[in-house]
Amino acid sequence: MEPREELTFIQKRFLVQRLACFDTPTAALKAFEEEFGIKLQRNRVAYYNPTTKSGAALADDLKEIFHTARKEFLAGLDAIPITHKAVRLRHLNRQLEHFADRNAAPIVLGILEAAAKEMGDAFTNKHKLEHTGANGKDLAPASVTIIQLPDNGRS
């Protein structure tokens, strides 16, 4: 493509949406070249991100597309499997089974540690001791009650 040749609206929208989904200009450029078969300069791609200095002059309709796409992308994070603890633990479990069958103890220990961290240090050797009472106040001293036992003639 000639340096001054104008992109179509569809091509511009493609770049805007890729950048709105946090693709780097290089990644967006690569995807653009694969999709449209057109070579662009990286700095030309960066223009389609209105959150940057070079994209400040982007047309209002493209800015709106950018902000809508970004909002939808961020709202859709639940659709990405790795954002769910159960998916991450299932993956770790598959790895554990794979490496346990191969007697790869260091890798297995690393996977077990990763699973413990995923669960919130549930299986570590860390002991948490309570040194303060409610709201950070000192703990009340333990009271000891002494019971006097009958002598029953033993001394």
Rank of each mutant, 00 (worst) to 15 (best):
L139H: 10
N103Y: 06
D121P: 12
A59K: 12
K53R: 12
P150S: 14
T83G: 00
L74Y: 01
K137D: 09
A116D: 13
E64G: 06
H67W: 10
M119A: 12
D151C: 09
N103H: 02
H131N: 12
A115C: 00
R4K: 15
A134C: 02
L77R: 04
L96H: 15
A59T: 11
F73E: 01
L40T: 03
G110Q: 02
A27H: 06
G37S: 02
T83Y: 05
P50F: 08
F99P: 02
A140Y: 06
A100S: 14
G153V: 02
K12E: 09
S54K: 14
R13Q: 13
N135A: 11
S143N: 10
K126T: 14
L112N: 02
E130L: 07
R70T: 05
F99R: 01
Y48L: 03
N125P: 09
D61G: 04
A31L: 10
D151H: 14
H67F: 15
E6A: 13
L109C: 05
I38T: 07
P81H: 07
A20N: 01
A114G: 02
R13M: 01
E33G: 03
P81V: 05
E118L: 08
K30V: 09
G55K: 08
D61H: 11
G37P: 14
V108G: 05
E113G: 14
N43G: 03
G55L: 00
S155K: 10
R154H: 07
D151R: 15
G110I: 05
I10M: 07
E97T: 11
N125T: 14
G37L: 01
L7E: 00
E6V: 14
H91A: 10
G37A: 08
R88V: 07
L7Y: 03
P25E: 00
G120K: 07
A69F: 01
A79V: 07
R90E: 15
C21S: 15
E5W: 07
N43E: 04
H91C: 10
I147T: 13
I65M: 11
